[in-house]
Nucleic acid binder design. Sequence first.
DNA 1: TAGGTGATCTTG
DNA 2: AAGATCACCTAT
Length: 204
Amino acid sequence: MPNRYKLTQSYFLNSDVVSLAKQLLGCYIHTEINGNYCSGIITETEAYAGKNDKACHAHLGRFTERTKVMYEIGGIAYVYLCYGIHHLFNIVTNTAGNADAILIRAAEPTEGVEHMLERRNKLKLTPQLTAGPGNFSKAFGITKQHNGLTVTEHQIWLSQGTSITEKDIVKTTRIGIDYAEEDALLPWRFYLKENKFVSKKSLS
DNA sequence: TAGGTGATCTTG
DNA sequence: AAGATCACCTAT
């Protein structure tokens, strides 16, 4: 694996979840699960801004068995089951009590593609192998059993990537949150403009 | 474009 | 205790 700087917990304590969601683009994500090492470049993220965001599971301080890890200190995983099938991977950010999180929606594979293909039951590397939050998590081997684990040590960790500038980033609305009324219009989904490993290109 | 899928949450 | 909901994906 390339020698890169691992992102430490302090990186995830940023109180500006929207700007951090952008900064994660271009960073590497690594997993080593059941001995299978994989890595990829993060290409698509969404920001969820805690209690004041109608699209966030922690909106209005909702505190349940499922959402409780969102209130912990930044730098841990929030993984939950969506539509009965998909394990969606989020990184909790900010200091404890804020419940901010960033959904990782897609990545471009760099290492361990054979493990991704096997987990996804595919033969060829195509964008849909790792684009879309359910596909991404499955390819990288992330499941609900990683809920609450740090993303700065073993099993799941991130490292610095190439620097990305504003002009490389598309900002658009988040997906699948029509119930969030006016917050559904916030441009809090970010992806790398020239990258094919993205779940859904915005119109225009 | 519709249907599968099942944990989670809300309501009665 | 039951029904609605859901940060999605795949194949017709």
